[in-house]
Design a protein around this nucleic acid. Structure first.
Length: 924
RNA sequence: GCCCAGGUGGUGGAAUUGGUAGACACGCAGGACUUAAAAUCCUGUGGGCAGUAAUGCCCGUGUGGGUUCAAGUCCCACCCUGGGUACCA
């Protein structure tokens, strides 16, 4: 009987489930190892072939680690709150829970088909009350804490209250928002509400006003994703920004530690670099400028204080608090028009616009602190309220955008740095000699920065300062499908002080509702459920938490998923500690990975977890992209033309399901007719007897009709072949388009592997002694696979297996001595076929519980090497030489070679390079 | 725009991290087995030029420069593609 993957895979899948083969216990004498996949969001289109790239790699690695004697935690669960389910609910009326549960069910079925070794008893689902109870609990802990910058850790709010009562605001150095200074006496005479307002400026979960995209026509708040070019993506309605009171996570308190602790992590340099750049620590100075004719100053941050004599104008962010106050009557109309324009601009648009800078003059002037000259104050969209102080001193001579701005609005440009000493230095390079700068003249830039900073400090108008680009993370969503906040208010008034619910009130569940659309004022749909909102004369918070709330700590819950008394039990977290290997995409580089690190550090400060960092080693997997098929419709007609003809008509492109298109991009017209009713009667104009589609490589998505369900592939080739094929495609870090072409190669490989063991249904493995050649084949494979697995080079492992099986087949080797270790070696990659053959070989226990083979160098020894001989860097011939040969003897042999002599002829021998075991290069 | 990554045969990719470019596969071509097909197996396969042939030479890792005995690998500049850009997850 041939290799029958269907039967084998369903048998073992069942057996493994019955025997709970993959169940993990926290009680073990073995060393622990935690392998984690990034939490999937169970979307409506199911798992597609792109997802398992990382999952297969992590599964292979988990199985490998188990065979190496580790107690491996390898769990899976679902990040189940989120926008798509809610959007689906708005469209269909189906409860997000219902559609989410259905999606999870299908995802799990797909995952199980692939043969993953997850311990499903540890499954975690974020929208499950037993889980989000602890997400809400974590929120309460952070709400009840502040960050002490001197002690560099989070502390309970009660300590802060004590400090204020005894020594006022001066007595602590906490990470905080803005408030007036106060002494102990003032604090003690404040009302409860006044005190709470100040405490809010210190809490790690705090409230502040911030803007959201709001669409009047849809009556909803929109995500950045849903806004395109100032219009809503759905419907194309105008949108504008709206200010709301919202929750925030004080990520900035941890900025320094988030940055510093990166050093100890085993992450790729590029990933660390992205986080460093995101945190964006910069050294500079803050400077206060007086506004002429006003009793006010404003603060700017600059990394180039040295350029202050070139500051010919100031720019405030359009949102800056002072804009309304300082705008003169004459400029009012223009400023308001400009503010209207900015209302519709996204931050990304504002940042990426470099060709056309825009701004408006407020009519007000700042006083230059050294020259006393008036400096005009402008507003401009390129200055963001969220970075630094939301205000800059503009130096057109040494900053590209300031320069473009000055050019456009006719503002003077004063050269203040002589760069002639540094040819090639750009406008913004910190190089050169100061000129036109009074007491700074003649100094090098770095020295000038130092001097001017101390001068500013002396004058009491500025100081050296460290600035972070990192912002506090918005933690509110005006949505239904998320964790409700365990918060109530005295009244619905905007200034009402939030009060926490006791832990005993958790989990606070979502009410059932009729409509998922938001209320017309931009509040969440929850706001409309009066009998949920009002409790005991108080009013609930109606925002819900963002998607990243649940995913910021899920890896801890896997350690102890059923614990009702704690988010994770002490014993469990002290055993498992942290994630040893985390595999996921780079798309999470600065979002999820930064938030999780922040939460983890908070838990660490509270003494709840043993380590500072959650993810020791991180590996980024690439994406498997889809190959979309596109046909061309003649505009205004129900007629389509083959791709060669599209330029002859006014056509619009249309994505169609890839299953109706063959490998040559030719369309199955009848198939497509059966897909959707509008194609039934459509006309298709062919070209030379075929109808050709265009194609495009882009991300796999249901919307683009280019997804491929792994279940289809598994039904045809089996899970083992699928797993090996996905790994064979290339390094897991790379993205590549999905193509089924080539899967035959891995399918053939497994059949060939099977035939080493079984012929016509009979086991043909014998007990003969292995030859040195066979041992060499086996041991070089063990060495290579073991090595490549440690760096997650699964693709080269698969090649090594192919080479090995090819060699053994050629040698007609059916020896147990060779085949058994090989079987164990392959088990992590192809768990089903190896388990089947293992049991046929007479083993009672699973191959997945065996131990990993060790290679023996003795079988790999070579005593000579065929050297490539290069002449002037070009390979000309090969000569076999003993490996330990002395250079002198080698030279003698090589130079007497006929081919070598032909190349050298009568030229002068300049150099003889002899790299033992590598290469010989002769320079003439 | 900014940050990060990646460009190697018709295709996916390999290359011991500066040392034989194209391993291993797919595809394609030819052949064996077969009444035929499937399956399986064998041979060839980067491009060009010369030769009946064995073979030989030249070119070749996105583009243009550079360093080196030696560059896919290191340096500089540029082009293209993908990811992120703070409310998609």
């Amino acid at each position: 009987m041939e290799y029958n993957f269907n039967e084998i895979e369903s048998t073992w899948r069942k057996k493994w489930e019955e025997t709970e083969l993959y169940k993990v216990s926290t009680e073990s004498s073995k060393p622990k190892y935690y392998v984690l996949d990034m939490f999937p969001y169970p979307s409506g289109s199911g798992l597609h072939v792109g997802h398992p790239l990382g999952y297969i790699a992590s599964d292979i690695f988990s199985r490998y680690k188990r065979l190496k004697g580790f107690n491996v935690l390898h769990p899976m669960g679902f990040d189940a709150f989120g926008l798509p389910a809610e959007q689906y609910a708005i469209e269909t009326g189906q409860h997000p829970r219902t559609s989410t549960e259905k999606n999870i069910e299908y995802f799990k079925d797909q995952l199980q088909n692939i043969g993953f070794s997850y311990d499903w008893s540890r499954e975690v689902i974020t929208c499950d009350p037993s889980y989000f109870k602890w997400t809400q609990w974590a929120f309460l802990q952070m709400f009840d804490c502040w960050y002490d910058l001197d002690a560099d850790c989070a502390k309970k709010i009660s300590e802060l209250v004590d400090a204020f009562a005894n020594g006022g605001s001066e007595s602590v150095n906490g990470s905080h928002g803005e408030h007036e200074e106060f002494d102990a006496e003032q604090w003690n005479s404040m009302t409860e509400a006044q005190q709470q307002k100040i405490l809010m400026q210190y809490r790690l979960m705090f409230q502040a006003e911030s803007e959201v995209w709001y669409c009047e026509a849809l009556g909803t708040v929109l995500a950045n994703d849903e806004v395109k070019d100032g219009l809503s993506e759905r419907g194309g309605h105008p949108v504008h920004k709206k200010k709301l009171r919202q929750w925030f996570l004080r990520t900035t308190a941890y900025a320094e530690r988030l940055l510093g602790d990166l050093d100890e992590l085993d992450w790729s340099d590029s990933m660390k670099e992205m986080q460093r750049n995101w945190i964006g620590k910069s050294y500079g100075a803050s400077i206060h400028f007086e506004i002429i004719g006003h009793d006010k100053t404003f603060e700017i941050f600059t990394t180039r204080a040295d350029t202050i004599f070139g500051a010919t104008f100031m720019v405030l962010a359009p949102e800056h608090d002072l804009v309304k106050e300082i705008t003169t009557v004459a400029q009012k109309e223009k400023i308001e028009a400009y503010l209207g324009y900015v209302q519709k601009r996204s931050e990304r648009d504002r940042m990426s616009e470099v060709k056309v800078v825009t701004g408006e003059f407020t009519g007000a002037y700042a006083k230059h602190p050294f020259t006393g000259e008036p400096v005009p104050i402008w507003i401009g969209e390129y200055v963001l309220a969220s970075y630094g102080t939301g205000a800059i001193m503009a130096v057109p001579s040494d900053d590209d955008r300031d320069n473009a701005f000055a050019e456009k609005y006719g503002i003077p440009i004063v050269d203040i740095i002589d760069k002639s000493k540094y040819p090639g230095a750009g406008r913004s390079d910190k190089l050169g000699i100061m000129i036109n700068s009074d007491f700074l003249d003649g100094m090098e830039v770095p020295d000038a920065i130092q001097l001017i900073t101390s001068k500013l400090e002396e004058m009491g108008i500025g100081e050296g300062k460290v600035n972070f680009r990192l912002r506090d993370a918005g933690f509110s969503r005006q949505r239904y499908w998320g964790e409700p906040f365990p918060i109530v208010y005295e009244s619905e008034d905007i200034d009402s002080v939030p009060m926490t619910l006791p832990e005993s009130a958790l989990p606070l569940s979502l009410p059932e509702i009729d409509t998922y659309a938001q209320s017309s004022d931009g509040r969440s749909p929850l706001a409309a459920i009066k009998d949920w909102v009002e409790v005991d004369g108080k009013f609930r918070e109606t925002d819900t938490m963002p998607g990243y709330a649940g995913s910021s700590w899920y890896f801890l819950r896997y350690m102890d998923p059923e614990n009702d008394d704690a988010f994770v039990g002490e014993q469990a977290v002290n055993y498992w500690k942290d994630v040893d290997l985390y595999i996921g995409g780079t798309e999470h580089a600065v979002g999820h990975l930064l938030y999780s690190r922040t939460w983890h550090k908070f838990f660490y400060d509270m003494g709840l977890v043993p380590g500072k960092e959650p993810f020791r080693r991180l590996v980024n997997q690439g994406m498997i992209q889809g190959r979309s098929s596109i046909i061309h419709r003649i505009q205004g007609e129900n007629k389509f033309v083959s791709a060669e003809l599209k330029d002859q008509f006014e056509c619009s492109p249309l994505h169609i399901p890839i299953k109706y298109v063959d490998a040559k991009d030719h369309l199955d017209i009848e198939g497509l007719r059966s897909w959707r009713s509008d194609f039934e009667t459509a006309e298709f104009e062919q070209f030379q007897g075929h109808f050709k589609c265009d194609h495009e490589v882009e991300k796999m998505s249901k919307r683009l009709h280019n997804t491929v369900d792994p279940n289809e592939v598994i039904a045809r080739y089996g899970a083992d072949t699928f797993r090996m094929y996905i790994m064979f495609l290339g390094p897991i870090e790379d993205s590549k388009p999905w193509s089924i072409n080539g899967i035959e190669g891995t399918a053939k490989f497994l059949k060939k592997f099977w035939r080493l063991f079984v012929k016509e249904g009979e086991l043909i493995v014998n007990e003969d002694q292995a030859s040195p050649g066979e041992l060499k084949t086996l041991h070089k494979t063990i060495k290579k696979v073991d090595h490549d697995l440690s760096t997650l080079g699964m693709n080269t492992c698969v090649s090594a297996f192919m080479v090995c099986v090819n060699e053994l087949t050629a040698a007609k080797c059916h020896k147990r001595e060779i085949l058994e270790p090989l079987l164990v070696l392959l088990a992590p990659f192809a768990p089903f076929i190896t388990e089947e053959l293992w049991s046929r070989l007479g083993h009672e226990e699973s191959v997945h519980k065996y131990s990993y083979p060790v290679h023996d160098e003795a079988h790999l020894k070579e005593d000579n090497f065929e050297y490539p001989i290069s002449i002037n860097g070009k390979m000309r011939t090969k000569i076999r030489l003993p490996l330990g040969l002395e250079e002198g003897l080698a030279k003698e042999q090589v130079l007497s070679d006929e081919t070598v002599r032909k190349w050298i002829e009568d030229k002068e021998l300049r150099k003889f390079i002899y790299v033992k075991g590598r290469i010989i290069n002769i320079v003439v």
